[in-house]
Structure formats: structure tokens, C-alpha cells
Design a protein around this nucleic acid. Sequence first.
DNA 1: CCAGACGTTGTT
DNA 2: GTCTGG
DNA 3: CCAGACGTTGTT
DNA 4: GTCTGG
Length: 234
Amino acid sequence: MCGRYNIIPDTETWPREFSLSAGSVSRIDTMKPNYNVCPSADIPIVRYDPGSRQMELSLAHWGLVPSWSKQRSVAYRMINARAESAAEKPAYRESFRWRRCVIPANGFFEWERSTGSGSKQPYLVTLQAGTVFGFAGLWDCWKDPGDDGSLISCTILTTCANSLMQNIHDRMPVILARAHYSKWLDPVSRDSGALLRPYSSKRMRVSAVSPYVNNPRNNNARCIQTLEGQGIHG
DNA sequence: CCAGACGTTGTT
DNA sequence: GTCTGG
DNA sequence: CCAGACGTTGTT
DNA sequence: GTCTGG
């Protein structure tokens, strides 16, 4: 699954990676690195805007609140959606059909199935190339009955683990190849479920990091500092 | 008909 | 155990 | 995801 | 909103 990740906004690489509109490019400057992105954070998402026919970068609350939900608090259980079933689940199917997004990330954290003693061991998972990548995501819009505001929220799709990730966990977030972003974001493409596959083990890297990242209040480069000689290789 | 769920993960 | 906050 | 709270009364 | 269970 994916319950924690990191983002380093970059005006050099993001515009080309995500084919962003000019307005969206200027928005990158306002975003700060987040080494420890937690559920309920406001996170950058990339959506296709049919009006301008361009990719737009905006913010969404991590934890999808379905439009019909009575309570905002359901969000904490909606941080991930199973790619295998999201098209059918009441909470996700309208978003799966009409409201897809790509969620920029530089790496994500997974915790090893608790091995008994001590604190939970976190691992940082990145691309071998070290570059930014995009999760497959869904978003929705929820009107708060208590006030005038509406909330844009999102979730990250998960799939089965590849052989590398299998060492830690049996699920992993869906990482899209750059060439597949536009196909994923186009609601008209009906075979897009085929894109929701585990990313290639060969292009990923898993490194042990300090349990410092476990505490959601910690947010600095130490969160992504890998421990020497404690990687896992496929 | 109305009431209540609608989710994922991991652990047992 | 379960929910909230980060 | 993990960490931390989870309660009331009265006093500062 | 829509579906299931009673």
C-alpha cells in the first residue's frame, strides 16, 4: 500500500514530466519540499482540463471523501483504493470513470511487516534513476454540509507487489510510466485498467531509512537519508 | 419500504 | 480497540 | 502510514 | 448517490 511518501517540487523537471500548462509551471514555485507526506496533507495532483486541453497542477486533500459522504472523517480510511476493484466500489467508481489524476512523488515509504521487537522498520522506495514519478490517483469533490466550502480530495491506487517489493509488503502503489499519463487521464480510454500494473522491479530501488520518519511531525531531509548497506535488491 | 453501508491494510 | 492529528 | 489520545472537575 | 439487508 502507500501511506507515506515524499515530494521535491522542481521547476526544471516537472513541466516536461507532466506536460504542465504555463500557469501550472508557475505554481510549482509556491510548493515546498515535503519529505514526509502524510494522509490528510494537501498534496499536488495533475489533472487533465478538457477546457484548456492542458495538464493542470492543483492541490487536493489526501484521503478521498466521496461526494455523497455525510462525514468528512471517512477520509482516513480512503487513502488507497485497490486498482482491481475501484471501478466497481461505490466509493470510487464515479471517480474511476470521470476523475482521474496523476500524483507526483519522488519516493514512498513502506514499513516491514512487524518483525516482533523494536520500532517498525521503514524503507524508502524510489526509481533507480532517482527521478520524479507519478502515482495513479482518483479525486472527488465533497460539499461540506456545515459550511459553504467544498473539498477536493484524492486517493492513491494500489496493486500487487512486484518481486522487489514482495520482500517488504504484498501491495504497492501504482506507478505510471510517463508515456501512459495521458492515457490514464483520458476518461474515454476504456482499457486503461491495463495500465494499473506493478512497476518494473528492475527500475526501482528499496533502501532502509531511520525510524525517524515514523513520526509524522518529522519533516526534513533526514527522513530520506538511507542507511548504509541496508538496501534490498531484486 | 427504511436503515445502513459505502474502505484498505494487517492481524487473528 | 478505535479514532484523530500530523 | 505511525503516534498519541482516549476524561472530568476545578484551579491557574 | 446507490446498493444490500432486513
